[in-house]
Simulated assay, not measured.
Amino acid sequence: MAFIQCDFSSETLGLAVSMNVILPQNTTQQIGMEGAASEGKHPTLYLLHGLSDDHSIWMRRTSIERYVSKLGLAVVMPAVNRSYYANMVSGPQYWTFISEELPKLARSFFPLSDKREDNFVAGLSMGGYGAFKLALSFPERYAAAASLSGALLTDWMFDARPQEAALIFGSKERFAGSENDLAALAEKAASNEVAASPLLYQCCGTEDFLYKENIRFRDHAQSLSLPITYEEEPGTHEWGYWDMKIQRVLEWLPIRT
C-alpha cells in the first residue's frame, strides 16, 4: 500500500485543507501484509471522521491500511472540522466541498474510479451521518454506505450543543425537511424512480449514548423498505468498537473483484 498525506487548496472553502489517502499496491515482500491492486482506476472508500477528530484519526486509531491491503481498495480520509458535513449557516460550505469538490480533486490527483459500483462511503459518529447523507443525497454516485455509531438524527446535537447546532444548521425548524435531515433524505431516496438506493449498513453499540437515535433511524429506514443491514452488540462510543466494526464493513462492501 501507499500512504499519502495530501495538503491542497479548496476553492469552495477558501482554505488550505488536508486528506490522507491509502492507495492499493501489488506487493509480496511486506512483512506480515500482502498488497493487491487491479489495473486501471481503483475502487474507493471515502472514510469520514467524527466531530472531535480529523483526517488523521482512522490511521491513528485503527489498522485500516492493513485491513484494506488485500482488497485493492483506495481509501480517502478528508478533514471537515466540526462542520457536520453541512453548508454551515455560519459560512463555510463543507457540504459542497465534501460532495462536489473533494471527489473531483481526489480523482484528478489519484487514479480513482468514478463509477457508481466502485464508490463507497463510511464514517463514525458525525461521519456516519455524513456517509448516509452523501449516499442518500446522491444514490447515483455511491453503491454502498456504512454508519458506525452514527449521529443520524442530530437530536443530541440540538439538545447538548444548541449554540453549535445553530451555527451549523440554524434552528430545528429550518433543519426539518432540509438537505441535512436524514429522515427526509431517506424518504426521498425510497421514492427515487431513477436511481436505486445504495446498500446501507448501520451498527451501534447497545450502551452508546446514540443507541436510541440509531434504533429510530433503523426503524424509519426499514419502514421505507430501504436496503439496510443493521447490527448491534454490546459497545460504547469508542475506538475499540469502531476498529472491530470497520473490519465488518469491509467484509460487507460489494467490492468488485
Rank of each mutant, 00 (worst) to 15 (best):
R174C: 08
S137V: 06
L134P: 06
A135Y: 03
N26P: 05
E233L: 14
A146H: 07
R141V: 10
A165V: 03
G170E: 01
V68M: 03
W156F: 10
M77D: 01
S9H: 15
A186T: 10
E213Q: 08
E65Q: 13
Q222P: 05
P24E: 04
D53Q: 09
T62P: 06
E39I: 13
S178M: 12
E187K: 15
R218C: 12
S171E: 03
E39M: 10
S171M: 06
Y201G: 00
L105T: 14
G127N: 03
R174Y: 05
L15R: 15
L134I: 10
M157L: 15
A166D: 13
L167Y: 10
E65I: 09
V17T: 11
E11W: 06
A16Q: 14
L23Y: 00
K245Q: 09
C203Q: 07
G14W: 05
C6F: 12
R218S: 09
E11I: 09
T62D: 04
R141H: 15
K115Y: 08
P111K: 10
N192H: 08
D155I: 00
P111M: 09
P162A: 02
W95C: 02
Q29I: 11
P111T: 12
Y67L: 12
R60I: 08
T28I: 13
A190M: 13
G40S: 03
P78C: 08
G14Q: 08
S149D: 04
V249L: 03
N87G: 11
V89P: 07
M1K: 11
F175E: 01
Q202C: 06
C204E: 00
G150C: 04
E207D: 14
F97S: 10
D53W: 01
H55W: 05
S69V: 06
G240N: 12
M126S: 07
K104G: 13
P24K: 05
W239F: 05
S90T: 13
E233A: 15
L199I: 01
A166R: 14
D118H: 08
S90N: 12
K188C: 12
D54I: 03
R174V: 10
T28D: 15
V17Q: 03
V80P: 00
A195E: 10
V80E: 00
T257E: 13
S108K: 13
L134V: 09
T62N: 04
L112S: 09
T154G: 06
H49I: 10
R174M: 12
P24M: 06
E34T: 13
E164V: 13
P254W: 00
S178Q: 11
